[in-house]
């Protein structure tokens, strides 16, 4: 742990100790720590300021977006109703929520199903098949994009929300890989006990394996939440009419044409940016632990 290192510092006096004889607090070390914190604070501002600016621009009069401080001559809360009345923003929001919830739940369940097969059963050519799953992880989306479009078009589902989530019914390699790791961590005796009680495999998966890997399932769910909510490529390919758009597609439409009555409204770009971003920020704070845990495990297990 990082906290352990400070303890270690105390037990192994550094070079600063000579300067501060007899003093409890080492000024050299203190200055170092303060400087360090200032540097970190500087980076924090660098990362957070753009978002603060976006929020600020969304609340300014249109003519002041690029000028003045963070607060304009007046707080224009009315920018929000203005965009909502000018564009079908509420419809886009509903579409986005629908797609995101469906995409996340289907991919979590289907990936957990597949992952369990690789973790629990021994079956012929398991290693080979799992290799095929992993190979799918590095496949660029572009290679399957055109036929996927043709398939959904053939089924008559272009210009609907179905192609934006239905592919997730068929599991995703990355999540299969991740969940398999977690299932492998469960003691096998648990399942043997369930078998003795007469549970079939599907029941065992549902009532023994899934509850015990809840945290991992939530990680997958929130990961996909972010992926599905932010996706622009699928909406660009599959959706044509404004009312079918998701929020990212809607924001792109506003970027393409930010004028109302021949006048450009840059503050409305910022309003759109806030509306598409804010839900993700809220989800992040609610599920921060899962986001961070998920990314951290990805990095250490992704071999």
């Amino acid at each position: 742990m990082a906290t352990g290192e400070t303890q270690l510092d105390r037990t192994l006096p550094g070079s600063g100790a000579r300067v501060a004889v007899g003093q409890k607090i080492d000024p050299g070390k203190l200055a170092f720590r303060v400087g360090f914190l200032l540097l970190l604070a500087f980076f924090t501002i660098l990362f957070l300021y753009p978002l603060v600016w976006l929020l600020s621009a969304s609340l300014k009069p249109g003519s002041e977006v690029f000028s003045g401080g963070l607060i304009g001559s007046s707080l224009m809360w009315s920018n929000y109703p203005k965009l909502i009345s000018d564009q079908p923003v509420l419809q886009w929001t509903w579409n986005s929520v629908l797609v995101t919830v469906l995409a996340s739940s289907t991919v979590t369940i289907s990936s957990a199903l597949v992952a369990f097969a690789f973790a629990y059963f021994r079956f012929p050519f398991r290693g080979l098949v799992f290799g095929l799953v992993l190979a799918g992880m590095m496949l660029p989306g572009a290679v399957t994009m055109i036929p996927n479009y043709l398939i959904w078009d053939y089924l008559g589902w272009t210009n609907t929300l179905v192609p934006l989530w239905a592919g997730n019914l068929f599991a995703s390699p990355f999540y299969i890989f991740m969940l398999r790791q977690f299932f492998l961590g469960l003691p096998r005796e648990l399942f043997d006990a369930a078998r003795v009680d007469g549970a079939n495999y599907l029941r065992m998966w549902w009532s023994v394996a899934l509850p015990l890997t809840r945290a991992a399932l939530i990680v997958v769910f929130v990961f996909e939440l972010k992926v599905a909510w932010t996706d622009l490529v699928k909406p660009l390919i599959f959706l044509r009419d404004l009312p079918t758009f998701t929020l990212p597609a809607g924001l792109k439409a506003i970027v393409d044409n930010p004028s109302i009555g021949g006048e450009k409204h840059f503050e409305l770009l910022a309003v759109g940016g806030v509306i598409v971003t804010l839900p993700m920020v809220i989800v992040f704070f609610l599920a921060q632990r899962y986001f961070i845990e998920g990314i951290a495990t990805t990095g250490s297990t992704g071999r």
């Binding site: 978002l51 972010k226 770009l269």
Partner: peptide, 30 residues
Amino acid sequence: IGGRSAGFFRTAFYIPNVTPAVAVGTLFLL
């Protein structure tokens, strides 16, 4: 730096990642 402050700064550094790519593009356009 370690400890609680590390957690705080990590969150601050991570937040831009939850911004949808289309909003990142829009933001940097401005």
